[in-house]
Amino acid sequence: MRLTCPLCGERDRREFYYYGAEDFLHRPGEGAPLSDWDNYLHLRDNPAGVTKDLWYHEAGCAQWLLVTRNTVTHEITGVELVAERAK
């Protein structure tokens, strides 16, 4: 499995750390009810198909990446920098 880091180019999966679904980007604001936190931390759509998830180029540029990926075929259709996205 290979991912194309927007900064470093195509690299082997060994260079990356996987965190989880895109949900982790949508942190509830201060004072949000605990159910929001349950949703944020635990509950997942977990699709069998296209999903977006978070990878970290740990052995590379140390950038967090938002990867568009198919969980059934492992096809990767997009990689973007989390930091760029949040701006």
């Binding site: 082997d12 999966r13 679904a21 069998a48 999903t51 998830d53 059934v72 075929t73 492992h74």
Partner: peptide, 13 residues
């Protein structure tokens, strides 16, 4: 393998 998957197959690392 550490990435979300329904493929029922893995990779070399």
């Amino acid at each position: 393998d550490f990435y979300a998957s329904y493929a029922a197959r893995g990779n070399l690392p």
